[in-house]
Design a protein around this nucleic acid. Structure first.
Length: 183
DNA sequence: GGAACGATCTGC
DNA sequence: CAGATCGTTCCC
C-alpha cells in the first residue's frame, strides 16, 4: 500500500477535497475509507484561517499534507488535511470514513455505540486522534503516526456535492463532497 | 480581564 | 431540541 502523494494536496482546498474521497485514513490500529470531506479556504468566512494566522490555526498555514486537529465544544476533536502552498491557510475536514479494519478497537473507543466514524468528531474518537497528533506529516510520517494511504481505488466519478454542515457563515458554498452509497 | 461562541454529539 | 464543557478569539 502506498502513501498519498503530496503533490495531490498542494492544490486549492476545493480541488483537493473530492480527490481525498476513497483514500484511506490509518491510525491507532484502524483503517477507514474517506467518504465525506469539506473544503476550507483562507478567503472563506467559515474557515478558522479567515481572520489570519493565530497560535491555534498555525498548522493550516504550514505545508500541505500535514494534519490539523482542533478541539471544539469543550469535548470534540476534528481532523483536517492541510492543503495548498505554505503560507496559505487552507485544509480539508475529514467528516466521515467507512470502517475497514480495527472495527473492534473503534467500537471500544466509541463505548460500544453503533455509529463508529460517520462524523468528524466520532472518527477522531474511533481512530484515537487528538491534539497531540496535530502538525504531524500524513504522507511521510512514522510507521504508527496518522497516515493517508491510496489502495488504488479512484475517487468517485460522480460524488455528491452540497453545502457544508454546522457552520453559520458562507452557508451556501457547496464545498462538501460525499462518496455515493453504490461506490 | 471577561464574555461569547463554536467545522459536534448525545440523550431526552 | 437542549445540554455538555473548555480553548480560542475578540472586545473592553
Amino acid at each position: 500500500m502506498e502513501r498519498v502523494d503530496r503533490s495531490l494536496l498542494t492544490a486549492d482546498a476545493p480541488a483537493v477535497a473530492p480527490q481525498l474521497l476513497n483514500k484511506l485514513l490509518v491510525h491507532g490500529g484502524c483503517v477507514g475509507r474517506i467518504v465525506e470531506v469539506e473544503a476550507y479556504r483562507q478567503d472563506d468566512p467559515a474557515s478558522h484561517t479567515f481572520r489570519g494566522e493565530t497560535n491555534r490555526n498555525a498548522i493550516m498555514f504550514g505545508p500541505a499534507g500535514h494534519l490539523y486537529v482542533y478541539f471544539t465544544y469543550g469535548m470534540h476533536h476534528c481532523a483536517n488535511v492541510v492543503t495548498g502552498d505554505a503560507g496559505v491557510g487552507a485544509a480539508v475536514l475529514v467528516r466521515a470514513v467507512e470502517p475497514l479494519d480495527g472495527i473492534e478497537l473503534m467500537r471500544a473507543r466509541r463505548s460500544g455505540r453503533a455509529a463508529l466514524a460517520d462524523g468528524p468528531a466520532k472518527l477522531c474518537q474511533a481512530f484515537a486522534i487528538d491534539l497531540r497528533h496535530s502538525g504531524t506529516d500524513l504522507v511521510d510520517g512514522e510507521r504508527d503516526a496518522v497516515g493517508l494511504f491510496d489502495d488504488g481505488t479512484p475517487p468517485p466519478v460522480r460524488p455528491r456535492v452540497g453545502p457544508r454542515v454546522g457552520i453559520t457563515k458562507a452557508v451556501e458554498v457547496p464545498w462538501r463532497w460525499r462518496t455515493p452509497a453504490e461506490d
